[in-house]
């Protein structure tokens, strides 16, 4: 990061501003999946991207979206590499990303448990703010979300699961 050139910083911001294909309210940078960007030579850029889940089908759409914005910015050669280590965690989602998720109706993830005993904070309904919510299914429309229902306003909602 310390060796970033102004061009790298500019291109990184550009790649990071690409919206997530499944949750378009958050950007790849806010989601914390854009790991690095290097300018390898004139017109040659390498981008490091990490998947949220091993089988996340969105990673291919993310790669082609990044390639497209960088091509449009005059970089003809873009290689997007997938990196696994260290594994992505929901803690990598920025504060702004969490705010946008909640506004979109998806309860943001809680901090991942750090001790041996998982601390179970209440999950807040993104519609009415009540903490009286019930788990309906551990897996929702995508692997990264669980389906819950608010017992106060009775609305179902997605919760971005801690990973």
């Amino acid at each position: 990061m310390v060796t970033d050139t102004p061009l790298e910083a500019e291109l990184r911001a550009l790649a990071g501003s690409v919206p997530d294909p499944e949750l378009p309210v958050v950007t790849l940078s806010e989601l914390g999946v854009l790991r690095d960007l290097h300018v390898l030579g004139p017109g040659r850029v390498e981008v490091e991207l990490t998947p949220t889940y091993s089988g996340c089908p969105a990673i291919e759409a993310m790669s082609s979206d990044i390639e497209r914005v960088l091509h449009d910015h005059g970089i003809p050669e873009v290689e997007v590499r997938t990196v696994l280590s260290p594994p992505w965690t929901t803690d990598a989602i920025s504060a702004e990303g969490r705010r946008k998720l909640a506004e979109f109706g998806v309860a943001p993830p809680r901090p991942t448990p750090s001790g041996p005993v998982a601390l179970r904070l209440a999950i807040r309904c993104p519609h009415c703010g009540s903490t009286d919510t019930t788990l309906l299914s551990r897996f929702s429309s995508t692997a990264c979300k669980a389906l819950r229902r608010c017992e106060s306003c009775r609305e179902p909602f997605d919760h971005f699961k801690e990973l």
């Binding site: 091993s54 089988g55 996340c56 309906l136 299914s137 897996f139 429309s141 995508t142 692997a143 389906l147």
Partner: peptide, 15 residues
């Protein structure tokens, strides 16, 4: 819900 859950678990394993 289980249709979706099992498909999601399958997708993790496929990944």
């Amino acid at each position: 819900e289980e249709d979706v859950a099992l498909a999601n678990i399958a997708l993790d394993l496929l990944g």
